[in-house]
Design a protein around this nucleic acid. Sequence first.
RNA 1: GGCUCCCUCGUCUAGCGGUCUAGGACAGCGGCCUCUCACGCCGUAAACACGGGUUCGAUUCCCGUGGGAGUCACCA
Length: 556
Amino acid sequence: MNNLEFANLLFPDVKHDIAYYEEKYPPRNLPETALVTRSAPSPTGFLHLGTVYNFFVNQKFARQTKDSVFYIRIEDTDKKREVENGVASLMHDISFFDIKINEGVIGQDKEIGNYGPYTQSKRGEIYRTFAKYLVTQGLAYPCFCSEESLTNDHNVQIAAKERQGYYGKWAHCRNISIDDAAERIKNGEKYIVRLKSPGNYSRKIKHKDLIRGETEFPEHDIDIPIIKSDNLPTYHFAHLVDDHLMRTTHVIRGEEWYPSMPLHIQLFNLFGFKPPKYAHVPCLSKEENGSKRKLSKRKDPEAAVSYYHEKGIPTDTILLYIANLLNSNFEDWYNKEFKEKGQVNVNDFMLDFKKIGTSSMLFDLEKLTNIAKNYISTLTTDEVFNKTLAHAKIYNSSFATILEKDIAYSKKILGIERGGVKPRKDIAAFGEVEESCWYMFDELFNARELNYQFQNISDKNEIEKIVSTYLEKYFDGNDDKDTWFEKIKKLSEEFGYAREVKEYKNNPSAFKGHVGDISTVLRVVFTTQNQTPDLYEITKLLGKQRLSERANKAKL
RNA sequence: GGCUCCCUCGUCUAGCGGUCUAGGACAGCGGCCUCUCACGCCGUAAACACGGGUUCGAUUCCCGUGGGAGUCACCA
């Protein structure tokens, strides 16, 4: 039996040859400068921060370069990890981010573009065609080793402190003759297809990475599986076939792939294909017991994008922070942009491979919070209202109902100290809104157990007099802010408190306190809180009727 | 264990032989401003892992040590 006959025995369903696919998926007609990038997630039904990170960086490089293409490929060759509606859920979750997809999978069973199918489970025959070619060249062979035998070898290698893997004397099936192998296959023995690696471990291979520069690795000499017993390809083989056929120019992926560079280069060389340019980005880590480790979806709740959705942290903020971690010059640009334009769009920034670091970075929630506060402070009242409502509808329906009851009123509350030169920066997430302004809604105010946080003035009698005097003599919902404040000052004087804080500080013994103490009393009686946004706005929005009710409710 | 990468304030980093008594941002602390908080402003504390070279000179170059990370599956 010759190689070709043997290959036909191994791959009876393969109808075409490599040339057929070369022709079917011709090189893209794009300018030299254009990039073709991709993200290739596995549909595990769980959107990981690392996936967003990968989507962002691949998409951004394409988006910022004219005529470039960013496509999505679904890597679903692992049946064990497959989840019902995984693709739909993935695409739904990613849709909240400002990620522009040009091609590939855009939804469950929905694809666009001429280089498909973009779902690996639908490309079986293509992979087998390429594997078959290797067999005809004597560069791949069937392996009949059992899982037990492999595990056993693995353990022996560890015990003997030998390099692990299927190579050299450990590659038991490498030298089985074609005729013997054919016989065993005809007898129904189970097998996988392995690469017959031409590599020599004692030789070095050089590789240039867009981020990490040039490094030298030993040549890859392990006979890795290329086609699994389920007839689907392994990652490495699918990477070769897909990125070549889909004409990817830049493979931007996590640094966990860096060690497999020698293998991937070898694979491309075997077929005489030009490898894509590679860029290995540092991974997101987290600190644990004083050391860094990769963000894990099992252990770290903040690794799941759902964590941010639940809190209501804006997705734009996550992108902003990712860009910040990615490019060291981002922050300067961000600050400048923020100062000049009052808001920042991450797409206006130019990501640069040269500015990407090489070591993994800690994902810092506090920094993210800071960015979120700044970001939300730049939004208009309508935007804040809409996003708060959208969040509440999913995660806090009772608050959503309250917000929608009187939309104009709700917007006024959210609009306090918003806009202008020094907007409030106290909200880092839309999920925090209820807690920051609950006292403005009667439904919430009346439902809660109230805890009045009085400060310097705590004498009930004094408080009662101050409040009733304010309401009867001074309050007027039509006052402008200056008039309002002038009245608070008068009220202070009337009760023996300094009208200015400075005045009090210069001569503390002459007063019972100062205007700040008086306004604090009003603030606490009306809201129970000693820290709120502008009291003038609050009293104006609440109105005299409700202010009186609240004065009564305070049981003074 | 093999291979590869990394090592500047707590964190993200600037730095590419003299500009470094090491700069910025977040977090911390103190103050100012102020009706409270937030904002803003000002200030403060905080780092070149260690040891050898090379050099007139090393955060920067080389070697070693230490530490950390990633990877070594019919997972991607």
